[in-house]
Simulated assay, not measured.
Amino acid sequence: MNTITITPIKTESDYQNSLRRIDELLSANPEPYSELDDELDVISTLVHAYEQTHYTIPYPDPIDAIKYIMEEKGWKNKDLEPFIGPKSRVSEILNRKRYFTLQQIHNLHKHLGLPLEMFINEKVLQAA
Rank of each mutant, 00 (worst) to 15 (best):
M1I: 15
N2R: 13
T3A: 07
T3C: 06
I4L: 10
I4K: 06
I9A: 10
I9N: 09
K10G: 13
T11A: 09
E12M: 10
D14C: 13
D14I: 09
L19M: 14
E24Y: 09
E24Q: 12
L25W: 01
S27V: 12
A28S: 15
P30I: 03
P32F: 00
P32K: 04
Y33S: 14
S34P: 00
E35F: 04
L36V: 04
L36S: 10
D38R: 10
V42T: 12
V42C: 02
S44D: 01
L46D: 02
H48Y: 08
A49Y: 07
E51P: 00
Q52G: 06
T53C: 05
T53H: 13
H54W: 03
H54C: 06
H54L: 03
Y55A: 13
Y55Q: 09
T56K: 15
T56V: 13
I57Q: 07
P58H: 12
A65N: 04
A65Y: 09
I66M: 12
I66D: 01
I66A: 05
M70L: 05
M70H: 07
E72K: 10
E72R: 11
E72F: 02
E72D: 03
E72P: 01
K76M: 05
K76H: 02
K76S: 06
N77H: 09
L80W: 03
L80Y: 00
L80E: 01
E81F: 05
F83I: 05
F83M: 14
F83W: 14
V90Y: 03
S91V: 14
N95T: 15
K97D: 06
K97E: 09
K97L: 13
R98F: 10
T101R: 12
T101A: 11
T101Q: 06
Q103C: 12
Q104R: 07
Q104E: 15
H106F: 15
K110V: 12
H111T: 00
L114Y: 04
E117L: 13
N121K: 07
V124F: 06
V124P: 02
L125Q: 10
L125D: 01
Q126C: 06
Q126Y: 09
A127W: 00
A128R: 15
